[in-house]
Simulated assay, not measured.
Amino acid sequence: MKNILKSLALLSVILVLQSYNNNDSKPIKSIKKIVKASAEQYTFMNNSIYSKLNTKRMMPRTIKKNGETGLTGIYDWTSGFYPGSLWYLHLLTNDAKWEKLATEYTERLDSVQYWTENHDIGFMMECSYGNALKKAPSKAYDDVIVQTAKSLATRFHPKAGIIQSWNASKKWGCPVIVDNMMNLELLFHATKISGDSTYYTIAVSHANATMKNHFRPDYSSYHVLNYNPETGEVLGKYTHQGYADDSSWARGQAWGLYGFTLCYRETKDPKYLEQALHIADYIKNHPNLPKDNIPYWDYNAPLNNDTPRDASAAAITASALYELATFLDKKESKLYKNFANSIINSLSSPAYFAEPTTNNGFLLKHSVGSLPHNSEIDVPLNYADYYFLEALYRQKTLK
């Protein structure tokens, strides 16, 4: 009898664990349904703002405090995300109307290829022209990518081995932000197109410096480092958009995860894969990560009922995790895919995904731009939508 009771108890534990694992590893509820809802939302958005965007070469970025859609110009760092989202809608639906719109908004950014004022041209042009090249080859678009890489390379300091992010100011002479890891994809792409290894070499140099200097022993990241561009000496470590200089800004962690994952894809250097895994584990196991896996705006921010979540950080993380999973063995791959699925399931729920014809047509609610600057707090953001759609595309296509 005692043995039977022990067996029943053991069976009960097994069933509980299986139930937990099944809940933890639920697939995305319905990609087709999410994609359909996303297409309907962006149809609503485009119909609402097309005349404004058409006359002023503007892009939708957020919702302003007065409830109007906040538009931004082509030289804003977020200008590539709207055309990029249109490309992903086309790739997900194969509807020709999205290709037409994506092409139109992408080509509005043509002059950005010559812009050298900051590092963000990687975001701007890889998300637009880079995604256009996923649809079909184009010599003209290839040329844009290579020229943009030339412009970005002007910000490289060879003695320090880093790409300067922002221009010098009274606060810092040569700032480098963790976000800059995202712009390395453009450089790798340019080398593939042109055969010129210069861009690849710059990308690897910058990644190595970031891995060495930006991350703490627990794999949390500083946001901004101030370098001596002649020696590579780190003069200071700060935050600009996080809670404190020694805190872990949620979107910064996501940028780092995504950036080192793409560096491994392009180089196959195992140190980048190891770095990405450490960052992923930091995020997944952080004690302040809420149960729905949508982080607060900073992992070290004081928590109360009003502490904002950041859906943009969650979407970037999920997209990176889907790619990261493709580089791992079956057991590890499942672990990170499950984590990504849980994030996307949360973002697809009514808590974060907007009801039809609400949210000014943006998909996701509850993102944070820069809380310390009282800018774009608890609002939709075009890059949250972009990485959400990219995550859906990757979940569907990456094996």
Rank of each mutant, 00 (worst) to 15 (best):
K2A: 13
N3Y: 13
Q18H: 04
N21Q: 11
N22H: 08
D24R: 05
P27L: 12
I31V: 15
A37H: 15
A39D: 12
Y42L: 10
N46P: 00
I49G: 02
K56M: 06
M59Q: 14
R61D: 11
L71F: 15
G73M: 00
I74W: 06
Y75L: 03
L91F: 06
L92S: 10
T93N: 04
T93K: 02
W98G: 05
Y105P: 01
D110R: 11
S111I: 04
Y114N: 08
I121F: 02
G122W: 06
F123I: 01
E126S: 13
Y129I: 04
N131Q: 13
N131S: 13
L133R: 12
K135N: 07
Q147R: 15
S151R: 11
L152I: 06
F156A: 03
F156G: 06
G161R: 01
I162A: 07
N167Y: 09
C174L: 04
N183C: 04
F188V: 09
T198E: 09
H206Y: 12
N208R: 11
R216E: 05
S221C: 14
Y222S: 03
Y222W: 14
L225M: 12
E230M: 08
S248T: 06
W249I: 14
R251P: 11
Y258N: 07
Y264T: 07
E274I: 01
Q275A: 15
A276R: 03
A280C: 07
A280Q: 01
P287K: 10
N288P: 01
L289C: 04
L289D: 00
P295A: 10
D298R: 10
Y299K: 00
Y299Q: 00
T307N: 06
R309I: 04
R309T: 04
A313C: 08
T317K: 05
T317R: 05
Y322N: 10
L324V: 10
L324P: 02
N338T: 08
N338M: 03
S342V: 01
S342W: 00
S346I: 09
L347S: 08
P356T: 05
L363S: 11
L364K: 05
L364T: 08
H366T: 05
S370M: 07
L371C: 02
L371E: 14
L371Y: 12
N374Y: 09
I377W: 05
N382A: 09
Y383I: 03
A384I: 09
L398P: 05
K399P: 03
